[in-house]
Every structure is written in structure tokens, then in C-alpha cells.
Simulated scan of single mutants.
Amino acid sequence: MVIESEVGPRVFLTAPLSLEEESDVADYRAPNLLQRILSLFSSVRPGSDLTRIQLPPLFNLPKSQLQCYGESVYCINNDMLSKCGKGENSLERLKSVVGWSISTLRPLMFGVAPYNPILGETHHVSKASLNVLLEQVSHHPPVTALHATDDKENIEMIWCHNPVPKFYGTKIETEVHGKKVLRLLNKQENYVMNSPKLVIKLLPYPGVDWIGNVTIKCEESDLQADLCYKGASLLSNKGYRSIKGKIFVTSTSKTICEINGHWDRSVTTKDICTGKVNEIYNAKESLSGMKTPIVKDPKVVMPSESTFVWAEVSQSILTRNWDKAKQSKAIIEEKEREFAKERKSKSENWIPKHFRVSYSKELGWESTPNERWVPQAPIIVPT
């Protein structure tokens, strides 16, 4: 589904990424895709940084990476986020946070990728009382900041992501540096977590996996969840998209419950003492039939809005007009290069509009929003 605004900046909104059986991502996949991808990376050495490679539109989803990050927060059916703050005790709240964190992952299609956001690009969407704002605060290296607030539930999120993809001959691994912070303001609890790695396998067979270890820690409650995302083995799909982990007391390392399941199906917790099993995440309930955002007030859509910046490229991809898509994308990328040269010639540093950004070897990239609350957006998710 595509929504185009009739007044103000021309905006294109596509359906959110969903479960594979419902996704239309396959419509964008090119024939002989593996051969083309291998050809694309034939001149790239193992270990190379891929952040500066510009993919042709044939390999792009009709949306920016900012939209993909944003969708993982505002596109979900059941209200898992508000549930995080309603648990009767800190353990129940952590279980809900674990379930919510799993819901931010989406099954991805091999061979297509979102656009690399340009510097200063933004994405601003609201769903009921939840308002989400993202900004590309650095281009090289690519760094995305996210701020989301829900004044009704008194919840705040701050993310700072720096994806670092590298080519290793038979696969591409993307480590997502940076942290996510979920704040339950009514409970005065802060949950700090990292992200799994995205692995694109080229050989011996193509595929996309989320793998690696994730930690979700709440210092205020002295509780922590350790999760391990596993992918398919070389010889079989056993364990494909499985997730295992535990919730324990940080100070004593005493395990309270075990976590098991598959992040694209169902995930449960099992109490160590009682043996009671509870489902904390159901992918079909959460990600099926999600609604496409719509433009509520096109007159106030920012010129930096992702769905405006990439509108012509997205429309051309959807209509399979590859020549026009290539031309439109080249114009955007050339303007980006010209702005970069101009800043360099004037010795100017880019200053983000909505965030203060810092970097250190110890902590990596960190972002602080300029405003306490994110305002209502001109783009909304129907409820």
C-alpha cells in the first residue's frame, strides 16, 4: 500500500515490514539476484567497510533505514510498549521489556536493503499518544538518533545506532554499535540494551539472520536479561531464528527464569522455582496486519522527512521504472556530496537539529534529545 500526499511536500509511505508470509518485499527482488550481488562485491576485499558503497535502486527497498528503525517502534499491533510499565513488579516489567525488545526485530528479505539516510534526514511519526522522531546525525560513519515519548504512559526511548557492515567473503556482517534506553518514568526504571548483529549469508546458500548476544539491564531493580539469538547452521536450519536466555539478579547471578523460543514465532519464560511457563512474545499477534501510516497534515511535513526525500525513488521502484529510480537516487546522492564538499571547504561541522551528539572510544556514539517530549507528527499510524 502506498499513500501519497496531495498538498504540501510529496510524501510516499509504504507498508511496514512484517512477517514474511505477509510481506511484499519480494516484489522488489531482481532476477539472478545472488549473481548480481556477488558481482557487486567482486571488487571488495574481505574486512572492507561497506558504508560508503552506494547500491543501485534494483537492490533497494522503497524506504529509508530511518523508516525501518521507526517502524520497529510505532508499527506493532498489540500495545507491548505500554504493557512494559504496567507490570505489578520489576520482574514482570522486565519480562515485558524483553518481549517488546524482541518485537523490534523484523524478518528481512535477502538481496534488498533500505536507502542509506542522508545527513540531516528525519522521520517523524505518531501513533496515538506515542510520538517518534529520528534524525541522521552523521553520514560517515552512519549514525542514527531516535527519540520517542508517550506522555500518556509516561515512557521515553532514546536510541543511538551506528551500523558497521563488513564483507567477509561468504557473508556480510553488520554490527549495530550503540545502545537503546527505555525509560519507565512512573516506575523510575531505565532499561539499557544493545542490538544483535545482522548477518547476510551469500554462500553456501543465501539468507539473512539476526544473531548474537543481547543484554537488557535495569540497575534500579538489580535485574538483567541475557539473550542469545541463533541462526541456521551450515548444514541445516535447526535452531534457525531461535532465542535462548535467562533473567537473573545482577548482584548475585541467581537465575529467576529461562527464556526460550523463536523470535519470528513465539517466546516464553519458565520460572526456575515453580516451572510456570508464560508467553512474552507472539510474532503473529504483534506483526500481522499492521497498518500503513498516513499523512494527517501534509502542510507541516518537514523537507528533511524521509518519505519526502526519497519519494520519487520509492515511486519509481514500486513501478519498476529502474532508469528513473537510478536518476532520482543519483540526484540525492550528488547533492549530499556537494553539501559535504561545501562544509569541508568552509571548515564547518554539521550540527544536528534535534539532538546533541558525542563520541568517545569508551562509550562510542551517544545522543541526547534537545526537547523533553517529542511533539505530535504530521504522519500518523491509524488506530
Rank of each mutant, 00 (worst) to 15 (best):
Q65P: 03
T307Q: 07
P62F: 00
Y240S: 07
R29D: 09
R241T: 15
E71A: 08
E71L: 06
K238L: 06
Y359L: 10
G87C: 03
V199Q: 15
G207M: 10
L146Q: 10
L33N: 00
H124T: 01
P382K: 03
A128W: 11
W350N: 06
K246C: 13
K86E: 11
E135N: 06
K127Q: 03
V176G: 10
V295D: 05
N213K: 11
L235H: 08
K284I: 06
A340Y: 04
P298T: 08
L182G: 07
S43N: 08
K171F: 14
N194E: 02
S18G: 11
V181C: 00
R265Q: 12
A311D: 11
I247D: 08
A311Y: 11
K83W: 10
R183E: 03
K217H: 15
K361L: 15
H140P: 02
E285D: 15
S347Q: 06
V300C: 12
W322N: 11
L363N: 15
P375L: 05
G120F: 06
V44H: 13
E333F: 07
C218L: 08
P46S: 05
G70Y: 01
A113M: 13
L184G: 02
K171I: 15
K276A: 14
D79V: 05
D297V: 05
E20I: 13
K353L: 13
N282A: 02
I211V: 14
E338K: 06
S23P: 05
R183Q: 00
E371W: 08
Q54H: 05
S233D: 07
A30M: 12
P62L: 03
R343H: 00
K284A: 14
S304Y: 06
E21I: 06
K276V: 15
T252C: 05
E305Q: 14
V313G: 04
I380H: 07
S360W: 13
Q136L: 11
K180A: 14
L105Q: 08
D209S: 14
N321S: 12
L17S: 04
H262Y: 07
G212V: 07
T149N: 01
S266Y: 12
Y205P: 07
P142A: 09
L66Q: 01
R45N: 10
N186R: 02
S18H: 07
L55R: 05
I380K: 07
R106G: 04
D150N: 01
S195Q: 07
L17P: 02
S96C: 10
D209G: 13
P303W: 04
D209K: 09
I76P: 01
S23Y: 03
S138M: 06
L182A: 01
I331E: 08
Y281T: 10
H161A: 05
G85Q: 09
K238C: 05
P107I: 00
S358H: 12
L235E: 14
L363D: 03
P57E: 09
T174G: 15
I256P: 02
V125C: 00
L182E: 00
C75S: 05
S286A: 08
M109F: 15
W310T: 12
I280W: 09
V192I: 15
S64L: 01
A325R: 08
